[in-house]
């Protein structure tokens, strides 16, 4: 009998994330399921802990509302002593074990929160306009450009919003919304509804 790994089930099922094509799409939506996520609580003044994490390839951004790191794992600033480490799918278990070992004996907390949130990608020339319909952040490129992150609201739902490069259009911004798994369907429907006036492509 085949074993079912519950964690491999995306928050949004395939009948919700149905591919839609549009030649003049202002918005491109996609689900980015199964990104590994580790919540880190640590005294930001502890330089040796930051170095121990750097040795594992985990960069700690100390500037508020910024992201550090790149292709492997990246680290999102959540608060003065709190970060979210985002890894490629399946990468969280090994990193959690390594980081727990590297920081052993310190007053820290490392928590696997992979299943807490799922991620929705919003791209396209009208992406910021769509988010601005329900997000109180200032999304002007001068304020919320590449490498910025913020915890805020979309509609009335908590989210972590991350600004990333658009994979299709070099130099343009795209956004990643990390939202609670149980709110993902609501946020997805809200985005699809809001994207109606701009033209929508859903990447399956």
């Amino acid at each position: 009998m085949a074993e079912i790994d519950m964690r491999r089930r995306a928050a949004l099922p395939a009948d919700v994330v149905k591919p839609v094509a549009c030649d003049t799409a202002g918005i491109r939506l996609k689900q980015v399921p199964h990104l590994g996520k580790i919540n880190l609580r640590l005294d930001a003044g502890d330089g040796t802990a930051a170095q121990a994490l750097a040795d594992l390839g985990v960069a700690l951004p100390t500037q508020a509302n910024t992201v550090a790191g790149g292709a492997g794992s990246r680290t999102l600033w959540l608060g003065p002593d709190e970060w979210l480490i985002v890894t490629p799918p399946g990468g969280e278990a090994a990193l959690l074990a390594q980081a727990t070992q590297a920081l052993a004996g310190r007053h820290i907390a490392l928590t696997d929160v992979t299943d807490n949130a799922t991620t929705i990608g919003v791209a396209g020339p009208q992406a910021a306009s769509l988010l601005a319909k329900g997000c109180p952040l200032d999304l002007h490129p001068a304020v919320f450009g590449l490498g910025r992150v913020a915890q805020s609201l979309i509609g009335s739902v908590d989210m972590i919003l991350e600004c990333t490069p658009d994979a299709l259009t070099p130099g343009e911004r795209a956004f990643l919304l990390h939202v609670r798994r149980s709110f993902a369907r609501h946020v997805w429907d809200w985005l699809v509804d809001g994207a109606r006036e701009y033209g929508l492509t859903v990447e399956g």
Partner: peptide
């Protein structure tokens, strides 16, 4: 004091 200016609803 940590995140900068934000809307009251947050």
């Amino acid at each position: 004091p940590w995140c900068g200016p934000r809307e009251q609803q947050e």
